[in-house]
Design a protein around this nucleic acid. Structure first.
Lengths: 204, 204
DNA sequence: CAAATTTACTGAACACTGTTTATTTTCCAA
DNA sequence: TTGGAAAATAAACAGTGTTCAGTAAATTTG
C-alpha cells in the first residue's frame, strides 16, 4: 500500500508549506500583521484549508515556535564552544541575548506571547523549550560543581540566569527601557554590559 | 463663565468613568476579553463615544497603565519601609514580584503588552514608569554608596535588578516555567526563593 | 470502465475586533 | 422659541479566527 504512505507524505509536505510560509511572514512582517488569511493567500489556498492541517492558530504557532527553538539550538551549537563552564555560561548568555535582539518577532513567539502555550494541557511538558533549558542547566551544574559561581542550587541558578536574560531582552523588545532615556544606539551596548556585569557579580 | 468650567469637569468625569470601567474589566475579565465595545456597553454608551475622549485604544491603555503604576507606587509606599538600603532593596523586589503575580493582567499592561507604548513618540519619555524606576535607582545608589552590593554602576545595577524581577514575573505569567515541571503550588515559592538567592548573591 | 465512496478543498457565513463618518439628539445663548 | 454649537450614536468598513455546507478531485468498489 504505497498510496496511503504517499498521502501521509503529502500531508506532511502541506503542513511544512504552511509552516514555512508562516515562519517567513513572522520574520518579514511581524506577528501582529500575520493573519491566517495572509498565510493562506501566500500559499494560494483558502483560509479554511489551514484548519485541515492544524487544529487552530495556537497549534500552528506552537509548531512555528518549535522551528524557532531549533534555530536557537543551532546557534548554541555554533557559538557555545568553550570547555570552561563559566566561559560557556558567558557564551550561552550572549548567544541568547543576541538571538533575541536580532529576531525579536521569533523571540515574541518563544517567550512572550501567550498563544502557543495554550496547546500544552495542564501539567503537560513544554517540549519546545526543554533542550535549550537543559543546555543551560547542564552548564550551570558544572559551574556549581567547580565552584565557579556563587550559587548552590542548580534550579535557582538556572531560574536566575534565564530570568536575567529574558528580562533584558523582553524589556528592550517591549520598549520599557525608554524609562532610562538612553540613546537608541547605546541601548544594545548597555544590555551587553549589563549581562557581563551580572556574570561578573555571580562569579567567585 | 461657570459653564465652560463645568463642561471641563464633565469631560474629565466622563474620562474617569471610561477609565474606571476599563480598569475594572481588565482586573475581572483580563486584557484579551476587554474590547472597546464591552467597555462602552458597561458604561452604557456607544463605542464611538469613547473616541470623543481618547484618541484610540492605545491612548486609553496608556491611561489605565498610569493608574496601574499608581497602585504599584502605593504598594511601595506601604511595604518599603526599612532604613537600611539593602533591606529596602529586598522589600522593593518582593513588593514588585508579589504585585506582579497578584495582578497579572495589570502587569501585562505595565510591562508586557506593546500597545500602551505606542503613545510615546520617538525619543519621548515613558512617564508612567519613571517614579517606580527612580525609586529603585535611589535605593541602589545608596546600596552602592554604602558598599552593600557588588555593583559599581547604578544604571547597570538597576537594569539587572529590574530585569531579574521582570524576568521572573513575566516568565511565570506567560507560563514558560512549565519547562521546569514544578508543582503549580511550589512555583510561587521557588520564585520567591529565586529573588532571595539573587539578592544574597549580589550582596557583599 | 462506470458508479459509488472517500478525501481534499473552498465560499460563505458567523461573531467578533478597532475605527470613521454622516446623522441625530441634546444643550445653551440670543 | 429658534439657531447653532456640542455631544452622542447608528451604521458602515475592513479586518480577525473559525465553522460548515457544498463542490471537486482522487480512490475504491462493483
Amino acid at each position: 500500500m504505497g498510496i496511503s504512505e504517499r498521502k501521509e507524505r503529502d500531508k506532511q509536505e502541506m503542513q511544512k508549506r504552511i509552516l514555512d510560509a508562516a515562519m517567513k511572514m513572522f520574520l518579514e512582517e511581524g506577528y501582529e500583521k500575520t493573519s491566517l488569511r495572509n498565510i493562506a493567500e501566500k500559499i494560494e489556498y483558502s483560509p479554511a484549508t489551514i484548519y485541515l492541517y492544524f487544529k487552530d492558530k495556537d497549534e500552528l504557532l506552537y509548531e512555528v515556535q518549535k522551528q524557532a527553538f531549533e534555530q536557537l539550538n543551532e546557534e548554541y551549537a555554533k557559538k557555545v564552544i568553550a570547555t570552561n563552564p563559566l566561559e560557556r555560561l558567558k557564551e550561552i548568555c550572549y548567544t541568547y541575548i543576541t538571538f533575541g535582539l536580532a529576531n525579536q518577532e521569533l523571540y515574541d513567539l518563544m517567550f512572550i506571547i501567550r498563544a502557543p502555550m495554550n496547546c500544552i494541557d495542564e501539567e503537560g511538558m513544554w517540549e519546545n523549550g526543554s533542550d535549550a533549558f537543559g543546555f543551560l542547566v547542564q552548564c550551570l551544574s558544572e559551574c556549581i560543581e567547580q565552584k565557579l559561581i556563587r550559587y548552590n542550587d542548580v534550579m535557582l541558578a538556572a531560574m536566575n540566569v534565564w530570568a536575567m536574560g529574558h528580562g533584558l531582552v523582553s524589556l528592550d523588545v517591549r520598549c520599557r527601557f525608554k524609562v532610562m532615556q538612553l540613546e537608541e544606539s547605546d541601548l544594545e551596548n548597555v544590555i551587553n554590559q549589563s549581562i557581563h556585569e551580572f556574570i561578573r557579580v555571580i562569579s567567585y
